[in-house]
Write a protein that binds this DNA or RNA. Structure first.
Length: 277
DNA sequence: ACGCCCGCCTGTAAGC
DNA sequence: TGCTTACAGGCGGGCG
């Protein structure tokens, strides 16, 4: 379940691996992954012959800027994976839906069992795809003052977890990192966003930036299902640092009380009843 | 305006 | 043992 740290890890590796490479051919094996285009042929035509100039990220979206000015947008959804393969003859994993082959050899493969993810090419007139206009600020790319963050929080009246996971408010945080951020903040998932003291606002902002930064340093989280793999097929290292996520019944690393799991909105939330108020 | 639920999907694992 | 069911959850959309 790639969230900001996993996507940022991919972005950093992609920047080293594919910038400057010219696309020789694109193969689409499953049209569901390129839903926004009239046809897979149209999608391919916008990519073939183009050179990748830069790799960016907004929230959970990867942005590959092409020499045409267009941007290849990749969203991994729940189960999407990107693999850089040197030899195209290597056996393809099941659910390999899109293959981007380069002139200089090798290819980039998009694999996605649950097909919640998607790829599309955006005209991006201002360099930023208008399809992503709805996204809120990126916690690592768009730093802001505590005062401004406090204003944004107070503009809403909803539970902190729901707000952190709302991509229109802040882009890139999902179920796993929202729980970790709230533990690091010492705040409960159901605290209302307009009820925080100045100190709590600062703790939340600081925890958000620090938790995500630390997770990027550890190359993201790979859970028991081993769903997340990096560009080279390796697992992340941040799962060992988790304080609450997927730790139901295990002792809180801070106070030793058992971590509690509750269902909210059909999703699991993990937290410490003692450390989070 | 937000909470809540569904549908989209497949792989895994628990339960009967 | 083998089938069924639940669960995992990002995101958009519908409903209350």
């Amino acid at each position: 379940m790639p969230e900001l740290p996993e996507v940022e890890t991919l972005r950093q590796d992609l920047a080293k691996e594919v910038v400057g490479r010219k696309i020789r051919a694109v193969a689409v094996a499953n049209g569901r992954s390129v839903r926004r285009h009239q046809s897979a042929k149209h999608f391919r035509a916008l990519l073939e012959g183009r050179t990748i100039k830069a790799v960016g990220r907004v929230g959970k979206y990867l942005l590959m800027t092409l020499d045409s000015g267009d941007v290849l947008v990749i969203h991994l959804g729940m189960s999407g994976q990107l693999f850089r393969v040197r030899d195209g003859k290597e056996p393809k994993p099941k659910h390999t839906h899109v293959v981007i082959a380069f002139h200089q050899g090798g290819e980039l493969r998009y694999v996605d069992p649950r097909t919640f993810g998607e790829l599309f090419v955006s005209a991006a007139p201002k360099g930023v795809p208008p399809e992503l206009d709805h996204l809120g600020f990126d916690p690592l790319e768009d730093p802001m003052s505590w005062e401004r963050f406090a204003l944004l929080l107070r503009a809403h009246h909803c539970g902190l977890k729901a707000l952190l996971m709302n991509q229109q408010f802040v882009a890139g945080i999902g179920n796993l990192y929202s729980d970790e951020i709230l533990f690091a903040s010492g705040l409960r998932y159901d605290r209302l966003s307009d009820s925080l003291s100045t100190t709590e606002v600062r703790r939340l902002y600081r925890a958000m930036v620090e938790t995500l930064t630390e997770a990027v340093k550890h190359r993201g989280s790979t859970l028991a299902d081993e769903q997340y793999r990096d560009l080279f097929g390796e697992v992340g290292e941040y799962q060992g640092q988790h304080q609450v996520y997927d730790r139901e019944g295990q002792p809180c690393r801070r106070c030793r009380n058992p971590i509690v799991r509750v269902k909210t909105g059909g999703r699991s939330t993990f937290f410490c009843e003692h450390c989070q108020v």
